[in-house]
Amino acid sequence: MKKIILASVLALSTGLAAAAFVGPNSAPLMTTAAEAAKAADDLPVVLEGYIVKQIQGDHYEFRDNTGSIKVEIDHDKWPTQDITPQMKVRLSGKVDRSRLTGFEDIDVKLVEIIK
């Protein structure tokens, strides 16, 4: 069991876990900020756009051509290269909703710079 967990962590940290099942009843591989804001809790999402500002701590504003959304990126999820608001990124994660307040943010598991 420890080997499986370790392999999963290593795959996520190296970007190897970007592939997923695509077919009936599967979650969309790519979505927009507007769609993600309305999505169900824990739904996996992949967003492409720009991180435009830091809100507070690990919380940032992400923007694409449909609008903006709050994302949470832990310090260990950032790539080794600095990211500016002008750099296009791909964020992979899941929708994080609160039962009390509704939409919270996107819990980002992987940040990739798109060239």
Results as ranks from 00 to 15, higher is better:
Leu12His: 05
Leu12Ala: 03
Ser13Phe: 11
Thr14Asp: 11
Thr14Gly: 09
Gly15Tyr: 00
Leu16Arg: 15
Leu16Glu: 07
Leu16Lys: 14
Leu16Pro: 06
Leu16His: 11
Ala18Gln: 10
Ala18Asn: 12
Ala18Arg: 13
Ala19Lys: 10
Ala19Arg: 10
Phe21Leu: 13
Phe21Met: 08
Phe21Arg: 15
Phe21Gln: 13
Phe21Pro: 12
Val22Leu: 09
Val22Arg: 15
Val22His: 10
Val22Asn: 13
Val22Tyr: 09
Gly23His: 04
Gly23Phe: 01
Ser26Val: 00
Ala27Leu: 14
Ala27Asn: 14
Ala27Tyr: 11
Ala27Val: 07
Ala27Pro: 15
Pro28Thr: 07
Pro28Glu: 09
Leu29Trp: 06
Leu29His: 10
Leu29Asn: 04
Thr31Met: 08
Thr31Ser: 15
Thr31Phe: 02
Thr31His: 02
Thr31Ala: 07
Thr31Lys: 00
Thr32Asn: 03
Thr32His: 02
Ala33Gly: 12
Ala33His: 04
Ala33Arg: 08
Ala34Ser: 15
Ala34Pro: 04
Ala34Cys: 07
Ala34Tyr: 11
Ala34Gln: 05
Glu35Ile: 13
Ala36Met: 08
Ala36Gly: 02
Ala37Asn: 13
Ala37Tyr: 11
Ala37Gln: 13
Lys38Gln: 15
Lys38Gly: 03
Ala39Thr: 09
Ala39Glu: 10
Ala39Trp: 06
Ala40Pro: 04
Ala40Cys: 01
Ala40Ile: 07
Ala40Met: 01
Asp42Thr: 03
Asp42Leu: 05
Leu43Pro: 04
Leu43Phe: 05
Leu43Gln: 10
Pro44Ile: 02
Val45Pro: 06
Val46Gly: 03
Leu47His: 03
Leu47Arg: 02
Gly49Phe: 00
Gly49Ser: 02
Gly49Asp: 02
